[in-house]
Amino acid sequence: MVTNPFELLKAKGEALDRAAEVILAAKGPLIMVCGESSRLGQHSIDQIRDFVQRTGIPFCSTQVAKGVVPEYSDLYMGTTALSKGDYVRVAVNKADLIVTIGHSIFEKPPFIMSKGGPKVVHIGKRSSPLTQAYLPHLEVIGDIGPSVEALADRLVGKLPNAGALLPLREGILAQICKGADDESWPPTVDRLVQALQNVMGEKDILALDNGLYKIAVTQNYRTNYPNTVLVDNWLATMFAGVSSGIMAAILNPERRATVICGDGGIVPTLHELGMAVRLKLNLTVVIVDNGCFGMIRWKQAAKGFAEYGTRLDNPDFVKMAEAFGVKATLVESLDDLEPALKAASEGGGVRVVVVPVDDSKYWSLR
């Protein structure tokens, strides 16, 4: 009996049985934890985590779903950043079955289905509208947490091929992390992410604006907690990063909020620093300076277009931040990178750290 008219039921037994049959027959299964999962309550999130651990099937996360399942798990295969062409694609292409949990058509597709590709089992609160990118072979519809728990009960101890894709893990993560220990200047975005990982607490909040650096950050930065990496991967518009960071700082005053924003995205939102100061927030804004609209330049090149309108003549970001009463630092050497981030994180108040970066690694993903 449903006492709450908005309460979701566990998926029907017939659907769970069919899904179990398909998963048991898979030679190389992969779980894809998707954006809707991050909107669930903690109990349902715990049930998703248990499903992954109990089945032993490796998993990938979409950008929005980072942390729903701990990314320091030995089953973590990476975070999808592009619909095709990124490093995680090695596992996606080798899989013969992908189990999506909480997929939403409003999030950038973590993969694009094609003829001859892996079968897809869709586990969600509602049936997915069919699109050219996403056409699941089987759906398990109902309250996600209880549904995956019941599905795990049907699978545990019966999955000889659960870890078939795990030998790919080391190579995928090595490619993703390549550049994290690079000693060149300006630093790679991967090196910047590693420095941030060293400085931030495990439940601190990282909010991203949109730009080419988002690929590096979401793939390299690992978290064990949902909604600690805030990414606009629904419409993926620019200029959302600072406002997201401000709201995160307002709602979570006990945690440090950090924003990563590109040089192309920060100028139209610099005035929001003044609001953060007035609100007496603890907020760090890291400005990634590559001298251009990196994602637009990247897409122009990918389509064979001539580069047009992407280069930036940037202002002095330190002086502009100081005009709003913000303490600001320009990182001028690799030795200063992590200390500058640490000082900003521990110093309290609103801080800006400007970091020149080299994002050339990600041009190979075009």
Rank of each mutant, 00 (worst) to 15 (best):
E346K: 13
Y308P: 00
N227W: 06
T310Q: 06
L30D: 06
A20F: 10
H271L: 08
I101E: 05
L279W: 06
K66W: 00
G211L: 10
R311A: 11
G145F: 12
M247D: 11
R126V: 14
F106H: 14
A216Q: 03
L173M: 13
G124P: 07
S37G: 09
G291C: 06
V22H: 08
D232M: 07
K214C: 07
F324Y: 15
E71G: 01
A343L: 07
S127N: 13
P109M: 12
S37A: 15
E254A: 14
C292G: 03
L365S: 08
K27F: 04
A65P: 02
V229A: 02
V229I: 10
V353Y: 07
L75C: 07
E338G: 06
A248S: 13
G78V: 02
S38N: 10
R256G: 02
A91E: 02
I57L: 05
L166E: 03
A19F: 14
V354D: 04
G102K: 04
G264N: 11
R366N: 15
V259M: 12
S37W: 04
I105K: 05
P58F: 00
S73F: 01
A95E: 01
G291M: 11
S184K: 15
N198S: 12
P315Y: 05
W185R: 00
P70N: 02
R311D: 11
P129T: 13
V69R: 05
K214L: 15
M295D: 00
L30I: 04
K94N: 14
V140G: 08
E7P: 04
L138V: 02
Y87F: 15
V331K: 08
H103Q: 12
I48Q: 03
I105E: 00
S244E: 09
A321N: 05
C177Y: 15
P70W: 01
L30F: 02
I105T: 02
K280E: 05
G325L: 03
N198A: 11
Q197G: 13
I48S: 05
